[in-house]
Amino acid sequence: MKEESLWFIFINASLINNFVLAYFLGICPFLGVSGKMETASKMGAAVTFVMIISSVCAYGIHLLLVAINAPFLQLISYIVVIASTVQLVEMIIKKMSPALFRSLGIFLPLITTNCAILGVALFQTSKGYGLAESLAYSFGAGAGFTLALVLMAGLREQLDFADVPKVVKGTAITLLIAGILSLTFMGFSGLGS
C-alpha cells in the first residue's frame, strides 16, 4: 500500500479537505471571529498552536489507551485533556506574558469548544497516523483553518462598508460568502492524484 507523504497530508488537510469549508469543523469561531483581520489571524494562530499540542497529546493518549485496552475512554479523555491543556496554557500565558494574553489568550476559552481541535484528534486516530503524520495533519488543519478565517475576515472587513440588504446582514451573508469560498476550494479537489 502506498504511504501518504507528509506533504500530501498537509495539502489534503489545508486545501482539499479544508476543515472549515469542506468538513464544517470550527464553524462557530469561523462565523464569530472572522469579522476583523487582526482577531482572525490571531485566532488562527492560537488554533493552530492548540491543534498541534492537542494532536501530540491525542497521539500519546491513543497509545496509552491501546496499551490498557480501553478504547471506550477515547472521547472523554481526549476532550478532557484538550480542555485542561487549553486552560493550563491560558493560565500560564496570563501569568507569564500579560501582553500575549491580551492579544491571544482571550481566544483560548473559545477554542475549548472548537470542534476542529477535537476533530483533528479524532481523525488522526481513525486514519491511523503516526506522530510525524499527525503533526503534518494538525499543522495542515490549522493552516487551512487560518487560511479560511483570514480570507473570510478580509472579505467581511470589506463588507463592513458595503450596502448589504438588511435581510442578509449578519450570519446569513457570512454563510453565503463561506458557501462561495467552499465552491472555490472545490478547485483544489483531486490535487495530487
Binding site: L73, S77, L88
Partner: peptide, 24 residues
C-alpha cells in the same frame, strides 16, 4: 481499568485546577 484511569485523570485534573486556581 476505566475507574482507575478516569478516576486518576479527574484526580490529576482537579489537583491541577486547584493549584492553578491558587497560583494563577
Amino acid at each position: 481499568i476505566a475507574l482507575l484511569s478516569l478516576g486518576g485523570l479527574t484526580l490529576f485534573l482537579a489537583v491541577m485546577l486547584i493549584i492553578a486556581n491558587k497560583k494563577l
